[in-house]
Design a protein around this nucleic acid. Structure first.
Lengths: 130, 130
DNA sequence: CTTGCTGCAAAGGTTTTGCATTGTT
DNA sequence: AACAATGCAAAACCTTTGCAGCAAG
């Protein structure tokens, strides 16, 4: 197993992206992250935003919520579930009461090794139902 | 509310697509559905496959599992969860023990009206871990 | 005959990537 | 000085869509 041995470097791009994600609870898409971080770092590129988000995700420091349209990112990796509005695509936090009962955390699967799980609820958000 | 009043028509495309999905437990992507159905209906187009899959999904007769890479489709809409291999992208069925406890089914959200929910487990499938 | 559905092909949107350059360590 | 990370732009990918012709009811 050739685990990557390369040393990571700290850059302004990484720290602004992570800082922005930590500061919001809106589960922004990569495009939103790009637009927001660009306000502070006008030269940042979309490619960098995608690369950095994927790296943080691989390290488990942020999580992605995959929707029909695109991926949304969340720097909160504590136990909680998400509500995805099928009309506007927005993502909201909801309490994951199911983690309390421990069933999901201790789940074993015959098909492979479970690393983590996600619970998504779908419907129409308050704003979309007028 | 202008609910659609148009009469749906039955076509070979729809019935082959639905029949194929019902016959497999492999959670194929739209591309796979296209390739498989094309064996029986050589003139079918990708656009039709995507349209038909989306229509079945909207009617709730099939469900989509959204992954990082693409959507996978499942004609089994009974209570069960999925395991998504983060290496090869394949989707497998797993038992959703959590539905038994009723917590998720009766979940209410302040952020909107819940219509349904999905539980996804992530990790490496047996085949990818050699 | 009406009009929903399809095939085709083009377009749309998101995400990835190659490469020269920049900037951390 | 090494080489990881970035910016830029093109490309890759998945999915949607406009439109003319086809076909189910």
């Amino acid at each position: 197993m050739a685990t990557s041995l390369k040393k990571e470097r700290m850059t302004a791009q990484k720290s602004f992206i992570f800082g922005y994600l930590k500061s919001v609870k809106s589960h922004p898409s990569a495009e939103i992250v790009y637009k927001e971080v660009k306000k502070k770092l006008p030269n940042i590129s979309q490619g960098t935003v995608y690369r950095v988000l994927n790296n943080f995700k691989e390290k488990g420091e942020i999580q992605a919520i995959d929707t029909k349209d695109n991926a949304h990112f969340d720097a909160d990796i504590s136990d909680h579930a998400h509500f995805i509005c099928e009309e506007c695509g927005k993502v909201f936090d909801v309490i994951d009461e199911c983690s309390k009962c421990g069933i999901l955390k201790n789940k074993k699967a015959k098909v492979g090794k479970i690393k983590h799980y996600k619970i998504n609820f779908y419907g129409s958000c308050k704003n979309c139902r007028k």
